[in-house]
């Protein structure tokens, strides 16, 4: 920016001073602007480079935290178990009282395996399907009940009546785990008006499966005679306090939670 020239421009008929004055009057802001024709060439300070380097390392740390970015096998592990929150031990689901836990498991099995014939209220229909409520074989010896569930039943029942014609009850043992068997037995013995108040443990259910596998008439339905002859007893095994705490998934007893 320069001072206006005091003398007129000889090559032009315009008075420069007057023109400049008019310009300043009309566009003062544009006139007072500064012109910058060059660019600075200061070197980049060392500390800027250093700070950027630190940020670069941090970004590298973020990427490094991902481990193998594209290796999905290493990242998404099958059977992944959620890591416990800081300060908490790995606990899984909270323990439940044994009777409630076995009943919960049993109710799920009942709705899959038993509901179709014996009905949601376990009353049967009086003609083809017997009631489970108040049945002596349900609330009686556990060995007998386990054998009926695992192998089915044909012929007269505890009440002397024959249900379901010549076919009888089909075997239900396929796909049952010992936990499932323990659950369903505990469930029918303590529901629908039955209340034996005891728990058929997983150990007892395992024994029942062993007994069932060792039968002479393997693969055939049970009859009242066989039940009376070989199975009129309770399954062996350590009894479980119905109020003891068990894991609701594995049904295994857990130690008392230490606060």
């Amino acid at each position: 920016m320069s001072e206006p020239s005091p003398k007129p421009d000889l090559e032009d008929s315009i008075n420069v001073t007057a023109a400049h004055d008019r310009l300043v009057r009309e566009a003062a802001a544009a006139v007072r602007e500064k012109r910058i024709d060059d660019s600075g060439s200061e070197p980049i300070s060392l500390w800027v480079i250093a700070v950027c380097g630190v940020v670069f390392l941090i970004a590298g740390g973020i990427l490094g935290g991902a481990g193998d970015l594209f290796n999905y096998g290493a990242v998404f592990k099958p059977g992944y178990v959620r890591t416990p929150p800081p300060g908490m031990e790995a606990s899984g689901p909270a323990p439940k009282e044994a009777l409630a836990a076995f009943m919960t498991r049993g109710s799920k099995i009942y709705s899959v395996k038993c509901n179709g014939c014996h009905g949601a209220d376990a009353r049967g229909d009086g003609a083809n399907f017997p009631t489970l409520a108040g049945s002596a074989w349900v609330t009686g010896d556990t060995d007998r009940l386990a054998m009926i569930i695992l192998n089915g039943l044909v012929g007269p029942m505890s009440s002397g009546k024959t249900y379901g014609g010549a076919g009888g009850m089909a075997a239900q043992g396929t796909g049952l785990s010992p936990e499932d068997l323990a659950g369903i037995m505990t469930y029918v013995r303590n529901n629908f008006g039955n209340s034996t108040g005891d728990v058929v443990t997983v150990e007892m259910a395992k024994n029942a499966m062993d007994i069932s596998a060792a039968r002479a008439k393997l693969g055939q339905q049970m009859t009242a005679e066989e039940l009376a002859a070989d199975h009129a007893k309770n399954l062996s095994g350590e009894p479980l306090d119905p109020a003891a705490l068990v894991d609701p998934i594995t049904l295994a007893p857990v130690a008392e939670a230490t606060p």
């Binding site: 500064k34 060059d38 600075g40 200061e42 070197p43 980049i44």
Partner: peptide, 17 residues
């Protein structure tokens, strides 16, 4: 920044970077 102060941009290479 340069227009109002009348000084050139501090570092052209930093601007490019």
């Amino acid at each position: 920044a340069p227009k109002v102060t009348g000084r050139p941009v501090f570092s052209y290479s930093l601007a490019k970077f």
